[in-house]
Amino acid sequence: MPDLGLEVLIKGNNLGRLLGGLWIAIEISLLSIAISIPLGILLGILMTRKNRLIRFLTKFYLEFIRIMPQMVLLFLVFFGTTRSMGWNLPGETAAVIVFVMWGTAEMGDLVRSALLSIPRHQYESSESLGLSRKQTYFYIILPQTLRRLIPVSINLITRMIKTTSLILMIGVVEVLKVGQQIIEANRMSSPNAAFGVFLVIFILYFVICWSVSMTARYLERKWS
């Protein structure tokens, strides 16, 4: 049996450090999704407006965010704005900003299609009952869309967790970076650490994303 470099993980607190790195990635995605949900609902409502200018602007925003690789967005915020605005943005903040921008766009599109799937008579009936526009959205439309939204937004969470692996590239010390550090530190004692460490990271990501997407699938089946 070849040396798979797994013994590095039980040395010292290495596994704990890896999990800590993973937690940073998860924290960033949970924080971003928590901010994106309300913003996304707002964007989704804006996107169903009849106003041409609003529709054009929201569509443009959505398409731009969609077509750019997330890595490019990260670079734009992390390197681009620090240079042009002259501030010093930590990688974590830049990551949250990018994921919120992206999450809002994706969420907005999901909200838009959920809103459009609500039959028109729901709007008309509530209007004929004398509810104001705000009341209509708040009491009639949003409760119905939320239920359709929850499974798809959970899917968005898994996509976000997967995408957080990219923040390594803007200098955030997350699980991959911690993995590299462990490999570097144990270069002499266990030269094959790269296999074991990256395998474990692979499995960690899989376990987390898989359980989240299983939950989404379960909810989708239950509520459809």
Partner: peptide, 19 residues
Amino acid sequence: RNTPLLVQLFFIYYGLPKI
């Protein structure tokens, strides 16, 4: 579907040569 491409690439590029 449940693992990021970057992690897959790191495993293929840095991990596999070890075996």
